[in-house]
Design a protein around this nucleic acid. Structure first.
Lengths: 123, 123
DNA sequence: ACAATATGGGAAAAATTTGTCCCTATGCAA
DNA sequence: TTGCATAGGGACAAATTTTTCCCATATTGT
């Protein structure tokens, strides 16, 4: 496991929530788990752009931050299910707000993001 | 400027908003600008943990994503002011929701974050 | 015997982000 | 003349995150 060298800022609410949500796929993991996709393989299918490895790592972190719980069924092949804790559930409305804003502004967002990418890439 | 090698995922609203808000200090920059801290030096004082350089880089990105505008006054020493665009202002309620959740759960967040840090660091 | 399934972790590489250091510019004050 | 304030960018180093590759488990189906 990577060991931080620079301590995080934990001053205000924004710092704190940032600390637990910062991670490329964490918000989507919470979202999909909330939608009922409990098994790792389901989540991997939902988020094909992420590697299996990072999803595991980020799921572990979410668990350590007590936003999700993990149940391992002692069967073969293994079966694992993640669920939101109450703490995690309380985050859902906030994530919904993020997603809604993103949906409402889809076209403009796609446009500004792609324009910037072209500038940086040089077309 | 760094040139991405892996294209971003732009499937849903969460991907899109992630693309413009992902950056260690961007949310706080938007927040403080909204509070009326318009000048770079003010923002740097508000966010002392960030280096001057990254703040500039992230301000540039926010501008390219049309969330803020920049006005340069031709005076010496230079004077620069950032402001939210209408697009940027529409994000404020969402950021407020994030901050509010973080504030409401301050203690628990601090506790789970620090516990995890100790585990990783080995105390 | 061998492949497929489902889950997960170690090690190392690659990608990306953030930080450090230094240089530029121009008036004003000491 | 030296130093401060204000703003910003290049070059490179360091930190951090994400990806790739490979190994392990134990049962079921071919």
């Amino acid at each position: 496991m990577y060991e931080r060298k620079i301590p995080p800022s934990l001053n205000c609410g924004l710092d704190l929530i940032g600390e637990v949500l910062y991670g490329k796929w964490k918000i989507r993991l919470l979202w999909f788990i909330n939608e009922g996709n409990k098994r790792p393989s389901e989540l991997q299918r939902k988020i094909p752009d992420a590697s299996r490895r990072v999803l595991n790592i980020q799921l572990n972190e979410l668990q350590e931050h007590e936003l999700i719980t993990k149940v391992i069924y002692p069967v073969v092949p293994p079966r694992v299910e993640y669920s939101l804790t109450e703490f995690g559930k309380s985050l859902i409305p906030v994530i919904a707000a993020l997603g809604q804003w993103g949906d409402e502004h889809q076209e403009r967002l796609r446009s500004v993001i792609l324009e910037r990418l072209e500038q940086v890439t040089g077309q």
